[in-house]
């Protein structure tokens, strides 16, 4: 099929960007969206132009490195799907597709569709862990964790850190990302001892990185490849308030 592309091209975070138009004539329905971009890039290189830089790695939907806005939607039209798992059968012959980077103040553009998401790492570094050194662990079965606890913690832990929640949020809030980690660890007996210090420290870091506040539009969950629940945000707010009260 034939596809028209309008792709955001930007040299670096300082330069001005613009949409550029491209046409592809032989796109197969079985191609993934990124394989379609590969095809475009080979064409561009052979024409002596710079290829479109975009982020990707595992192409299995788990590493979280890929992610672009496709027709204004993070990761494109399919629900709970990363960009790499989106296939061209989701589009029609003759479609025009707008492709933009994930935009947020905390995600400076590196080039074209590549953005720097290290702000998310900084949030984890501020407290998204259990403080246990190698060698300190007790026998694994000595602390039972019920099936329901483990499953519920897992639902939060499944976050792949792609940043689609931030890109989808009108406030560029990282509340879903941050709350998923807080919620994952707070629900396990191994992680709940540090919940108070963790939540204060991670929320402060989130603000410092320049992410916006959550105003409960719930757009983040809709676009999340892992369908991480906004109830995690409620839990984060609860734990945050509790930590503030208990502290004082």
């Amino acid at each position: 099929m034939k596809i028209n592309l309008k792709i955001w091209r930007q040299r670096d975070s300082q330069s001005k960007g613009e949409f550029k138009e491209y046409h592809l004539d032989e796109v197969s329905r079985d191609m993934s969206f990124l394989e379609m971009l590969d095809t475009l890039n080979i064409k561009l290189i052979k024409q002596g132009e710079n290829p479109v830089e975009f982020d990707h790695d595992c192409r299995e939907g788990i590493c979280g490195q890929c992610g672009v806005m496709i027709n204004g939607i993070a990761h494109g039209p399919l629900k709970n799907t990363t960009t790499c798992q989106l296939h061209m059968r989701s589009f029609n012959d003759g479609d025009t597709i707008y492709v933009e980077p994930f935009k947020a103040a905390a995600f400076p553009i590196v080039r074209d569709l590549k953005v720097n998401r290290s702000a998310l790492d900084h949030i984890i570094a501020a407290g998204g862990y259990v403080s246990v050194d190698t060698g300190q662990a007790p026998e694994a079965n000595s602390i039972p964790v019920t099936f329901e606890q483990a499953e519920s913690a897992f639902d939060a832990a499944a976050c792949i850190g792609c940043g689609a929640c931030v890109a989808s949020c009108k406030n560029s809030s990282a509340a879903l990302f941050t709350s998923a980690k807080i919620s994952h660890l707070a629900q396990l007996p191994q992680g709940d001892k540090e919940t108070s210090t963790r939540v204060i420290s991670m929320v402060n870091q989130m603000d410092e990185e320049g992410f916006g506040h959550c105003t409960n539009t719930e757009a983040c969950q809709v676009e999340c490849p892992e369908d991480i629940s906004v109830l995690n945000i409620a839990r984060m707010n609860y734990e945050y308030n509790r930590a503030r009260v208990v502290k004082k």
């Binding site: 662990a137 694994a140 039972p144 964790v145 606890q149 483990a150 499953e151 191994q190």
Partner: peptide, 22 residues
Amino acid sequence: ANLIDQAVAQGVPFGREYGGYL
């Protein structure tokens, strides 16, 4: 065996039986 202990202590949500054991 140590690795399982270590990972559980870090909060890795391994599959559990209903009684809470791995």
